[in-house]
Computed example of a mutant assay.
Amino acid sequence: MDLEVRHLRVVCAIGEAGSITRAAARLGVAQPTLTAQLSRIERMLGGPLFVRTRQGAAPTALGEFVLAKARSVIVSFDAIQREAAAQVGFMDGRRPLRYTANPGPLMVGLLDGLQSVFPGTEVTLRTETHMSAALTLVASGQQDLGTVVEYVRDDVPTLPPGVVTLTVATEPAFVLLPDGHPLAALPQVGIAQLRDARWVLPVSQGSGMMEAFTALCAGQGFTATVRHEAEASAARELIAAGQAVGLGQATFRSTPGVVPRPLTGSPLRIRHVLVWRRGSALARRIPSVAERAERAYADAVARSPHYLAWLTEHAALE
């Protein structure tokens, strides 16, 4: 008879309970049955694993060794089972396809596309403002697919092991101005023209925005005054109230009181990126997912008159 994982579970149950009687109760078997199982396991391993005491059962030196190895094996075995179930579960409708996204045109825009690629499968959305949080969720298998938003910069961030990416679109960042701002009447704005502005920017989201923005301003010989740190909806309110200027995606939806304007020369660029795990059940369907993501992005562009106006004069960014 060969040693099996179920045998290791018996050994661990006795070790954790400290008593064959208590372990038998936890496992739902009779004590004589568990005692007989332990005897067979000890014969396979070549020696006693526990000694009986008044307090119960204490591991021998061999038992301590087997317990340490068994716990590690059981953890790995259980992880394999969970991951295998996670890999194939949504493909046959046993669980939802779990989708996480940074705020952007693909966040909600891709949901219908995923439903069409995986008919009969429920799709759930988990929003994450921080790029690294979304990447970690995909890398760990807690989410099956993600879309993240990142600023193009020289220091390319390191991806978690096993994560694969595909860029759906690259677009220019726009500056967001109050509609009463003197520069709002211009077709485009140079970053140096905003050297005295008060800015509202989000708390670090791991997207590289602050790094790219700071480097851009430094290249023009100034340090921007970031007066407020706020998430998107609060930032729009501050901008509309004339309290600050901000940055936004080219596919930014029109907001009363806020005027998007392109930055001269498109010095800040944003990528919209699909992320998934290498070798996952979803991986072979990525071409279809990417096609739906490109459609979702195109729909967002069509709803953004300021970006459409920019595209009539500029080629799409690569």
Rank of each mutant, 00 (worst) to 15 (best):
S204P: 02
V258R: 08
E122C: 05
L111E: 08
G257C: 10
V123S: 06
G141V: 01
L110N: 11
V123E: 00
I41L: 10
G56C: 05
P157H: 00
P202Q: 03
S207G: 11
G89C: 05
A57M: 03
P160E: 00
T121R: 13
R303T: 13
E318S: 14
A215F: 00
P119W: 06
A169F: 04
R278N: 13
I80V: 14
G89T: 01
T100N: 13
T167A: 12
E83F: 05
V88W: 01
R295C: 04
E229K: 11
P96V: 02
L67I: 14
A169Q: 12
V73P: 04
L247I: 15
P267R: 10
T158E: 13
A281M: 00
T129W: 07
R227N: 03
P105F: 03
A13N: 03
T264E: 01
T21S: 15
I41N: 12
L282T: 03
A302I: 00
E318K: 13
A58F: 07
L274K: 08
Q81I: 11
E42L: 04
A70H: 11
T100C: 15
M107N: 11
T223D: 03
A61D: 13
V152I: 14
T124A: 04
R43W: 06
G113Q: 01
M1V: 14
Q205S: 12
A101S: 15
V289Q: 09
G28Y: 07
A25V: 11
H130L: 13
V5S: 08
Q55A: 14
A309M: 00
S116G: 05
G246F: 05
T100F: 10
S19L: 05
A215R: 14
D299E: 11
A17W: 02
L67C: 08
S288W: 03
V51E: 09
T124H: 04
E83P: 02
W276N: 14
R126V: 11
T264V: 15
L137H: 06
P96Q: 03
T225R: 15
T53H: 06
E237P: 01
V163L: 14
A309P: 04
V168S: 06
T312A: 14
V258H: 10
Y151M: 15
M44F: 03
P256L: 09
A293V: 12
L34P: 04
P256A: 14
Q243L: 12
G47C: 08
T147V: 14
D179Y: 04
M209T: 05
V226W: 02
A173D: 02
G208M: 04
V138I: 07
A281K: 00
T147A: 15
S304H: 03
E294C: 06
T167L: 02
L317D: 10
V88C: 02
L67H: 08
R303H: 13
